[in-house]
């Protein structure tokens, strides 16, 4: 990039920030893989030692309709923010909260919740999927809360609201190819998708339907 700008040419624009694999800004398809050929890394953690000398490297932006290209390798991932805004939270205000140890959480659940919460929201799962499905991303957030007692109170509403928003944003459906899990830089498990499907089904069958509303949260 410096080479280009020192020659006065416009360098190729790409998103990047923390350079530690945690902010989720990088978004590049490298030699046919989101974040390149190495396992469990983001683009910023991929080293040139993973390539052969003189090798031609093909770089593309994420390609999915809900992620329009803004310039060169930069895409717009606002659709992910919209899904979180639809219900990716526990509805508590600041203050007036009982003691943190008031409700014990089984360690195994806390650990599984953390596994899901490790998602960095980069969108590699969508880019890897032939259907441009966002199921891995959405299910990771649904699972994080579904596994904790604090998240159970509005679990049924949450999963329905997030899935509805996911569809609205134009993401495709899951056909269980497993590409998302294979390419996820944080190795988020596809079992989260199974958990989300179960949550969704039980919400539809057992819980009262989400109120007819467009604004006002869940």
């Amino acid at each position: 990039m410096n080479h280009w700008s020192s020659k006065g040419e416009d360098p190729v624009a790409f998103d990047h920030d923390c350079r530690e694999g945690i902010c989720g800004a990088c978004s590049m398809y490298i030699n046919g893989h989101p974040h390149g050929p190495d396992k469990a890394v983001t683009t910023c953690q991929l080293h040139m030692r993973k390539f052969k000398d003189g090798e031609t490297i093909v770089i593309e932006p994420w390609r999915a309709r809900p992620f329009p290209v803004l310039k060169d390798l930069i895409v717009d991932r606002t659709a992910f923010d919209k899904i979180i805004q639809a219900g990716g939270y526990i509805s508590v205000n600041t203050g007036g909260i009982p003691d943190a140890n008031a409700i014990p959480v089984p360690k195994v659940n806390a650990d599984l919740s953390m596994d899901a919460a490790a998602c960095i929201g980069c969108g590699a799962c969508v880019a890897a999927c032939k259907n441009a499905s966002a199921m891995l991303f959405v299910s990771a957030k649904v699972s994080q809360f579904a596994l904790l007692p604090q998240g159970r109170a509005e679990a049924a509403e949450r999963v329905q609201a997030m899935v509805a928003e996911m569809d609205k944003q134009g993401f495709g459906n899951c056909t269980n190819t497993g590409a998302c899990e294979a390419e996820c830089p944080k190795e988020i498990s596809i079992s989260n998708i199974a958990r989300m499907n179960r949550e969704f089904l039980s919400a539809r069958v057992c819980a009262p339907k989400i109120k007819e509303q467009t604004g006002g949260g869940i």
């Binding site: 939270y89 526990i90 508590v92 600041t94 203050g95 909260i97 009982p98 003691d99 943190a100 014990p104 959480v105 360690k107 806390a110 650990d111 919740s113 953390m114 919460a117 994080q144 809360f145 904790l148 604090q150 998240g151």
Partner: peptide
């Protein structure tokens, strides 16, 4: 800490 636990932050246990 109380606030974060209520928000669903999966602290180590």
């Amino acid at each position: 800490i109380d606030q974060c636990v209520a928000q669903g932050v999966p602290f180590a246990r």
